[in-house]
Simulated assay, not measured.
Amino acid sequence: MSTADPLLQPFQLKHLRLKNRIISTSHEPAYSEDGLPKERYRLYHEEKAKGGIAMTMFGGSTLVAPDSPPVFGNLYAGNDKIIPFFQEMADGVHKHGAALMCQITHLGRRSVSNAGDWLPIVAPSCVREEVHRGFPKIMEESDIRRIVKAYGAAAKRCQLGGLDGVEIEAYGHLFDAFWMKRTNFRTDRYGGSLENRVRFSLEVLEEIRKQ
């Protein structure tokens, strides 16, 4: 019988081979500057890579569109400014033999409108968010198409930045708001049945794969 610790054994994740099974999951250390992962943010993750973990996940939660502004110290991947910072971060982590992925999301109603470009927060239905107390604009199909594209564009920026993958945050954010009957009262093809309520999420995944 092998006495090797399974946590220290390599793991194959699709195309990505991890040197062990120890990862640091996505979280928000509030080290971002202007929505970007500058030196302090990069060094924080490099230190974990130096320590021997297989993968560090970051950017909890990195935002994809201007109507989901970085109001909680988030990173913002809604434009190309972030790509060189991703590249520098990827180089710093990869040189220690670790992989890195970024968590991307749209906050939906879990945000505020008096930040960033002062755009209205959006959600599948106008249900007030309990903590931040905003009343969201009901998403039109044009909003849905735009945000689906924004997810794909953000994922592409992660790829161009040399990252090894992306993670999508769902709980409490826009994905979750479409899934739950108590926050989705739509009567179109994005509401009602479970098939309809997961349609937005599946369209996002399809758009990311296209990229």
Rank of each mutant, 00 (worst) to 15 (best):
M1E: 02
T3Y: 10
A4S: 12
A4R: 13
P6K: 15
P6R: 15
P6M: 15
L7S: 07
L8E: 02
L8S: 00
L8Q: 03
Q9F: 03
Q9G: 01
Q9L: 14
F11W: 07
L13P: 00
H15V: 08
H15K: 15
K19N: 13
N20Q: 08
T25H: 01
H27E: 02
P29L: 10
P29T: 13
A30I: 02
Y31D: 06
Y31N: 08
S32L: 03
S32V: 02
E33T: 06
E33Q: 15
P37Y: 11
E39A: 12
E39N: 08
R40V: 08
R42T: 05
L43M: 06
L43S: 02
K48H: 14
A49Y: 05
K50Q: 09
K50G: 06
G52R: 10
A54S: 03
A54Q: 05
M55Q: 13
F58E: 15
S61N: 07
S61F: 00
V64L: 05
A65E: 07
A65N: 10
P69W: 10
P69F: 05
P70F: 05
P70H: 12
L75N: 10
A77C: 09
A77P: 01
N79W: 00
I82D: 07
P84C: 13
F86H: 15
M89G: 00
A90D: 05
H94P: 01
H96C: 09
C102L: 14
S111L: 00
A115D: 06
A115W: 01
I121E: 00
I121H: 01
P124N: 08
E130N: 10
V131Y: 04
F135M: 14
P136H: 13
P136I: 13
K137I: 01
K137A: 08
I138Q: 06
M139I: 03
S142H: 04
D143W: 10
I144N: 09
I147P: 01
I147S: 06
V148N: 07
Y151R: 14
G152K: 03
G152D: 07
G152P: 06
A155V: 05
C158F: 06
C158H: 13
Q159S: 12
L160E: 10
G161R: 15
G165W: 05
G165A: 11
E167G: 06
E167P: 03
E169A: 03
Y171V: 03
Y171N: 09
H173P: 00
F175A: 14
F175P: 07
A177K: 07
R182V: 01
R186K: 10
T187G: 11
T187A: 12
D188F: 01
R189T: 07
Y190F: 09
Y190P: 04
V198P: 02
R199P: 03
S201I: 09
E203S: 06
V204R: 08
I208N: 14
I208L: 15
R209Y: 09
R209V: 07
Q211I: 15
